[in-house]
């Protein structure tokens, strides 16, 4: 049995002449926390709306839990929980009444799930307070409660921490990590707060102007973001030989454009520079680099890769 939860192939959504999503192809596997990274208007919400059935693709294909037909996708969506954009509920109903309404509609047996979902998001004490009087943070929590009520195997979360206070953000992060760990819930989460995303995600997809620029595992991203000495030389193969034979390190990588990333000698870069020059390698530039998800993303959309 395949572990692929979601696969999009060449998924495109056009609004008139505007291409909101341009041939997006990505795969989310079971157990992953897949972070969608992109600027406002990059296409993150469009992608999530297409997956959740709120919008129809102009072309391309969505496979969810192995289902591709319209009816199959609808069945598959009942195994998901979604929170897309600002949570929306009936303003004249309380938190419990809103969840109870959806519980009945979804045919979820037993009323316990409503209480459990409210407990998970710390909304048990809202009593007779109507949804219309909720703060944005409370609305976000209720939105998450609805997404979790059916114990979904796959969570789709679009900017879920908007409106949450710092304490709420920490609780939310811990909740998602717990769900992922204990229930093996797969999560697709979009956020423009990259520090939060980097604390959660096991995999990343970078979107810009409707295009998925890159998908990468957290491990590979960390590797790429490792602190390093980035060198531009006149002869990269020769420099590589010097690193191995003269300096005794294989902890480096060769990039296109006669560039090298050296992950050793970080506390003594002068030795590397001097040895290369002594061995006749022309050193054009050398700089020490240390980047995070944010830098990586900014460089990616700027069209330049670096470590």
């Amino acid at each position: 049995m395949s572990d692929v939860i979601l696969q999009t192939q060449e998924l495109t959504r056009r609004y008139g002449r505007t291409v909101a999503l341009d041939r997006a192809t990505l795969t989310v596997e079971k157990g992953q926390i897949f972070g969608l990274v992109g600027r406002n208007g990059a296409g993150k919400t469009t992608l999530i709306r297409l997956i959740s059935g709120q919008s129809m693709p102009s072309s391309g294909q969505i496979t969810l839990f192995g289902q591709i037909s319209d009816a199959g996708l609808n069945r598959a969506r009942s195994r998901t929980g979604a929170m897309v954009e600002i949570p929306s509920f009936y303003p004249y109903l309380t938190a419990r009444q809103n969840l109870e309404y959806y519980r009945i509609q979804r045919g979820i047996p037993g009323k316990n799930c409503v209480e459990e979902a409210l407990e998970l998001v710390n909304l048990t004490d809202t009593g007779k307070k109507k949804f219309k009087t909720f703060s944005l943070g409370m609305k976000q929590r209720l939105g998450l409660a609805l997404a979790l009520m059916n114990q979904p195997e796959f969570l789709l979360l679009d900017e879920p921490i908007n409106g949450l206070d710092p304490e709420g953000i920490v609780e939310f992060r811990e909740l998602l990590l717990r769900l992922n760990r204990e229930r093996q819930t797969t999560i697709l989460i979009s956020s423009h707060i990259l520090s939060e995303l980097s604390a959660l995600a096991t995999h990343y997809g970078f979107i810009e102007k409707g295009k998925v620029l890159e998908t990468i595992s957290g491990e590979d991203l960390r590797e790429k973001c490792r602190e390093c000495l980035e060198l531009t030389v006149d002869d990269a193969p020769r420099a590589a030989r010097v690193l191995e034979q003269q300096l005794g390190t294989r902890d480096y990588e060769v990039l296109p454009g006669n560039q090298l990333r050296v992950y050793a000698f970080l506390d003594d870069p002068q030795t590397v520079n001097r040895t290369l020059l002594e061995q006749g390698v022309g050193l054009i530039s050398a700089q020490q680099k240390d980047s995070n998800l944010e830098d990586y993303f900014l460089n990616l959309i700027g069209g330049r890769h670096h470590g």
């Binding site: 059935g53 998901t80 929306s88 789709l156």
Partner: peptide, 9 residues
């Protein structure tokens, strides 16, 4: 959207 995203036809 709460109904559609749950896959209710």
């Amino acid at each position: 959207k709460n109904e559609v995203s749950y896959g209710l036809p």
